[in-house]
């Protein structure tokens, strides 16, 4: 008999009483102040949500109008002539993508090299000023970059684009029609306002964005792996190639895609440089092109009411492209090893 020991059943409820082990609801009992606070803040959040959904909905509604008025050809047709009420934005989409790709080709290497220099090569007291310098570049308004580009950079850059078309003109995208070898300055007209020049400028503008994302991931490359490489007798560049860049792959791609999104939407700098040309073309060195945002900015003034929907839809297409690119960028950054510490 175990009388001296506690009977474990002593404190149990008598048989017949069902004791439910259900969780009880706990009322936080918010005071009046908090209720108001949460209500207000939630209200603001909802207002912003509604506002943005309204914008999205409005744009979608306009898109259906456009589909009504112009059909699917709006998206793939190649004749764009608002004066004749012909809205087919394929050549403009092409121009947008071309400018963005050239911008990437220019901006990606510069951003990568700048990010590597800042994190790996710069002496520590130079790091902060260098970062400030790159961020300052981001702060310069695009209208000012555009003004500098069209009045200073373009006149010099066309010498380079001419050289490329003279020597590599047998490749279709580098070909330029017209008298490009003229001794006097008449050759210039063929090169001014091209995709290449616009892409060059936009490329310079997107460097700070890509650079800061890349910089963020390079900083996180683990010291232990770096030391392993050095201990094997590696040079600095060997270490960067084997440790830093593979580690930072997610950030490199993500940062580049974010930059791409920005390049797609750049308006004023492109507007200041390009000469308007709405025919589809792949010759990137030849003057004349159009991008969606530049088109909207320059043409809407001539738009009568019925055509507004078309412009809005074109802008909506651009919006969707940018969202898609940004989402892919975020995925790349978040899923990589380096993604954890970086905010995209």
């Amino acid at each position: 008999m175990t009388l001296l020991l506690d009977d474990p059943t002593e404190d149990a409820p008598a048989e017949g009483v069902q004791e439910q082990d259900a969780p009880r609801s706990v009322d936080p009992g918010l005071g009046r102040v908090d209720k108001t606070f949460r209500f207000t803040v939630r209200g603001i959040g909802m207002f912003v949500l509604v506002m943005t959904v309204a914008i999205g909905g409005f744009l979608g509604w306009q898109a259906t109008h456009t589909y009504h008025d112009y059909g699917l050809k709006f998206f793939y047709g190649t004749t764009f002539d608002p004066s004749r009420n012909l809205f087919q934005i394929a050549p403009i989409l092409l121009g947008t993508v071309e400018v963005a790709l050239v911008a990437l080709a220019v901006g990606f290497p510069i951003a990568l090299m700048t990010a590597l220099f800042i994190t790996e090569y710069a002496p520590s007291r130079l790091k902060s000023p260098l970062i400030a310098l790159v961020d300052m570049m981001a702060a310069v308004p695009s209208v000012i970059v555009g003004v500098w580009a069209v009045k200073w950079l373009q006149d010099r850059a066309i010498f380079t684009t001419r050289w490329i078309s003279q020597n590599l003109g047998w490749i279709p995208i580098f070909h330029v029609d017209g008298d490009i070898d003229a001794a006097s300055n008449t050759w210039q007209i063929n090169f001014i306002g091209s995709v290449a020049i616009a892409g060059l400028v936009v490329g310079l503008m997107i460097v700070p964005l890509a650079c800061s994302v890349m910089r963020g991931v390079f900083d996180l490359a683990p010291l232990s792996e770096r030391e392993a490489a050095y201990a094997l007798g590696s040079t600095k560049w060997g270490m960067i190639r084997t440790v830093v860049i593979p580690f930072g792959r997610g950030g490199i791609i993500g940062g580049t895609m974010l930059a791409l999104g920005r390049a797609l939407g750049e308006t004023v700098a492109v507007l200041l440089i390009i000469t308007n040309d709405d025919t589809p073309k792949i010759q990137v060195l030849s003057g004349g092109t159009d991008t969606i945002s530049a088109m909207i900015a320059s043409q809407f003034g001539n738009a009568h009411q019925g055509q507004l929907a078309a412009y809005l839809t074109a802008g909506f297409v651009l919006f969707v492209m940018t969202i898609a690119v940004n989402t892919v960028a975020a995925i790349f950054v978040n899923r990589s090893r380096s993604g954890a510490g970086v905010d995209v």
Binding site: E225, E227, A228, A229, S234, T242
Partner: peptide
């Protein structure tokens, strides 16, 4: 080193010969 630090981006075989590649 104290904490093992193989290169994650490389296979076992490539890790072994990493020193040759780096030098």
């Amino acid at each position: 080193f104290q904490k093992p630090n193989p290169f994650p981006a490389m296979s076992i075989a490539d890790n072994v010969t990493a020193g040759l590649k780096l030098t």
